[in-house]
Design a protein around this nucleic acid. Structure first.
Lengths: 333, 333
DNA sequence: TTGTACGCGTTATCAT
DNA sequence: ATGATAACGCGTACAA
């Protein structure tokens, strides 16, 4: 396989490049017989138009950049897939760049992407806290998962407060009244927001947190285990635990199992993130909250498309999360 | 920020585009004073050269495609990072495309990438089994993780046989003699290869598998649990378990814990994959085998660069995996 | 219906 | 040391 150019195709078909171009691009002003000849020639040479050259003319590269700092790709990948989906893979291709949390590397990547003339940029943070704006750029930008600190930018985030509400609401509907909340690093807005949502919903019901307060700690199984032990000690009558992440939930389940406390009949457990390797394999499989990141990616792509057509937006848009019911929660019979 | 062109820079600096180009590209044949004027003009306009136009001339786009079918990005992402690393992020950008295991989608992506004039292609499979070759393409291709079925292609894979050997060797060095192997779907070459390596090493030592055979099953925690129960039943004197994946290892650890069998003092456990969310958080943290995928990605990038310079290779190259020691294994005292 | 000619932004060759 | 000019591959207004 070599690289045929439009000239080669035109020559083989016995027409001019202009005609060849029109024929292949479905312009009406070309005779059917001619078009077919051109198309055949193109196939024969397995011609593939040079998108770079097209981009030079149309001023559109048909590419977007996905700039992330999310090492493991745990959040970026679903967002990428959603975006790919919405753009249509033949229309737009995605440059994935990982800045690895390094501001300098981010600048580098940004320069490279701009010089590649990406039509737009999706910026994905590693954690759902506010991140510094990239500032004024020659292309539209959408911040996803982690919002920009500049309200003039457009940010798309998932609803952590709503997620906390949903989780607790589900537990209440399961008939639970003594609900505890074990979560991660209080320095994360996600931890604060989820906790706030949980408490709000509890308060509406006239309930208070079992254990008296939110158990902040770390985003790890070990903390989930430790906190659960303390919780059981202080408040053995707890009948539901809302874990701030699936990792924490795994630790919670571990200790409950160890203590021969049945899940969900005696204590219901709900996680957060729907990280399937953790949630599906746990004992029992974990009810959890899904961020709907693919959807977020699709919306990001749509907003980007709109912005490229001049319809720009700004501010922070919040998108609902989704309850995934598995076996770690059930009605109290 | 707008989009300044070289013409704008030249005009502002009061020189021709040709001179401006030379000045910015560090060509020697330009007066220092002139160069500085041009550079300042470029900065002032925040000029960024249009890589598309450069590519038109140089016949190099400075991009490569990473074509994967690995949904979760668990393997692709480390490989991507290694490749990014080796290429240098300012030299080469990477298009990440996920075919999601769909041959048609793969064709689509391939067309798109070729028309974007990628300089090369890295193809990453979802599992380390042989996959169909993409055939003859106008750009060099390196298959990583999953080898191509065409020996004329260049494939880079990790050494699963060696990994099995390494795992068992480590257990032997820990003084274990009754070593069992619980692994996943026997339809995966990875499962077969790891098992083969394990048995080889055992045989060298005059040992046989505890339990009499390899326990094939599924790549899940649940299978790890079930198999461990059966194993303990049939062969209670086992003193080490080599799990074919970290997921399986988690199941193994779970049951051992449940049975009050101490790890590692009575039974040592080793996993495979070094999937950190599983391996680091387990109780105790899991000794496991790392695929060195970032290294594989770097090599892939190097091979691709070489091939772009005309130095092509072919056949399957196997790269060593690495033992990661944590607390689930220890000498038998 | 088809072909000619120009331009997209850049680099390289050749004059000057 | 600098500048005019011709490519690179393609789309499109315009002429034929």
């Amino acid at each position: 396989m070599s690289r045929a150019t439009l000239r080669d195709v035109a020559k083989l078909a016995g027409v001019s490049v202009a005609t060849a171009s029109k024929a292949l691009n479905g312009q009406p002003q070309v005779r059917a017989e001619t078009r077919e000849r051109v198309v055949r020639a193109a196939e024969q040479l397995s011609f593939s138009p040079n998108t770079l050259a097209q981009g030079l003319i149309t001023q559109r590269s048909g590419t977007v950049g996905l700039l992330t700092s999310d090492l493991e790709g745990r959040f970026s990948i679903p967002i990428l897939m959603g975006a790919e989906d919405a753009f249509g893979s033949d229309q737009t291709s995605v440059f994935l760049c990982d800045a690895r949390g390094d501001a300098i590397r981010e600048k580098h990547h940004l320069r490279a992407l701009l010089s590649r003339r990406v039509d737009g940029l999706i910026v994905v943070g590693a954690r759902p806290d506010t991140r510094p704006s990239l500032g004024d750029l020659p292309v539209p930008v959408v911040y996803a998962y982690a919002p920009s600190d500049d309200p003039a930018d457009l940010s798309l985030i998932t609803d952590n407060v709503g997620g906390g509400r949903t989780a607790v609401d589900h537990l209440i509907r399961c008939g639970r009244r003594r609900i505890a909340h074990i979560t991660g690093d209080p320095g994360y807005s996600a931890a604060q927001d989820r906790a706030r949502g949980a408490v709000e919903r509890l308060t509406e019901e006239g309930l208070e947190l079992a254990g008296g307060e939110v158990w902040f700690g770390m985003w790890s199984e070990a903390w989930g285990r430790g906190a659960t032990r303390m919780l059981l000690d202080r408040c053995p009558e707890v009948d539901a635990i809302f874990a701030g992440s699936d990792e924490i939930a795994r630790g919670v389940l571990d200790v409950l199992h160890e203590e021969r406390i049945d899940v969900p009949s005696r204590v219901a457990v709900i996680g957060f993130d729907n990280w399937s390797v953790l949630a599906v394999n746990s004992r029992p499989p974990l009810t959890t909250i899904d961020h709907n990141l693919e959807h977020l990616g699709r919306i990001a792509a749509q907003r980007l498309s709109a912005a490229m057509d001049g319809v720009t937006g700004s501010g922070v848009e919040t998108f609902p999360v989704r309850l995934i019911t598995r076996e770690s929660t059930a009605p109290l019979r």
